[in-house]
């Protein structure tokens, strides 16, 4: 369970954007988060992904309290939460080919474990992940500026899944995409959820999308606490 309890968060001391937020995401569940612009949805996403320290309150992942954020994360939580950002352009290194974008977390996992993943195993895993998100092999050798936003967001989703997270935060993941790509990406995430591998916090302006995608929707700006 990804649990946020009594979280105040913001970017300036003493001026929190969020106040007293409680939120729970269970494995195998999609929790939708809606709310008008400026209510702190992305701030909440960053707190949940251990990118931003809450000013007050706690974040707990599967019973382990998050003691630090960013580089100071608990090693046990290093890849516990993945995130897909709103803008695929901003969330990839423009110099890397899509193949390397997806492979990066695999390389890191290879370095961290004794059984170092060989290059062949990595190539196969990249191909498998690319296939799962609907990227054809010829796209893998292109750089970000040579593919569309939708194709790039598919690569970003594949990268997020490559690190094997237990929870995935999708921050307006489909806001810049057309309907068919949106459906495809939501389908990929849905399959992971149904397999019980993933708990998802889906953030979107699109209430119709959240109605279809999420098991339950909480509105930020109103009462945020979800059922236990």
């Amino acid at each position: 369970m990804l649990t946020l309890t009594g979280v105040d968060a913001g970017y300036e001391p003493g001026r929190p954007v969020l106040r007293g937020v409680d939120l729970r995401v269970a494995p195998g569940e999609v929790v939708g988060l809606s709310g008008p612009s400026g209510t702190g949805k992305t701030t909440l996403a960053r707190v949940a992904a251990l990118l931003l320290a809450p000013q007050r309150g706690t974040v707990e992942i599967d019973g382990v309290g998050a003691s630090g954020v960013r580089y100071a994360r608990d090693p046990r939580l290093r890849t516990a939460v993945g995130m897909v950002f709103q803008s695929p352009r901003r969330s990839v290194d423009a110099r890397l080919r899509l193949r390397d974008v997806i492979a990066e977390p695999l390389r890191l996992r290879g370095l961290a474990t004794a059984a170092r993943a060989g290059a062949t195993a990595r190539t196969e895993r990249v191909a498998e992940l690319a296939g799962r998100v609907g990227l054809t092999a010829d796209l893998l050798d292109r750089r970000p500026h040579e593919v569309s936003d939708g194709q790039l967001q598919r690569a970003c989703l594949a990268r997020s899944l490559a690190s094997g997270p237990r929870y995935l935060v999708c921050d307006e993941m489909t806001a810049m995409l057309d309907a068919s790509t949106t459906a495809a990406l939501v389908g990929v995430v849905g399959a992971e959820v149904r397999a019980g591998r993933l708990g998802v916090l889906a953030i979107s302006h699109d209430d119709a999308l959240l109605d279809v995608w999420a098991d339950r929707v909480v509105a930020l700006g109103a009462a945020v606490a979800g059922p236990a």
């Binding site: 990118l51 290093r78 901003r90 969330s91 990839v92 996992r109």
Partner: peptide
């Protein structure tokens, strides 16, 4: 930037982020 956040969430250490990105 978000691509650094993404690398971090993929398990990258500070040194790795410096070296690679």
């Amino acid at each position: 930037r978000e691509h650094v956040d993404a690398a971090l969430l993929g398990g990258a250490t500070r040194w790795r982020v410096v070296r690679r990105h």
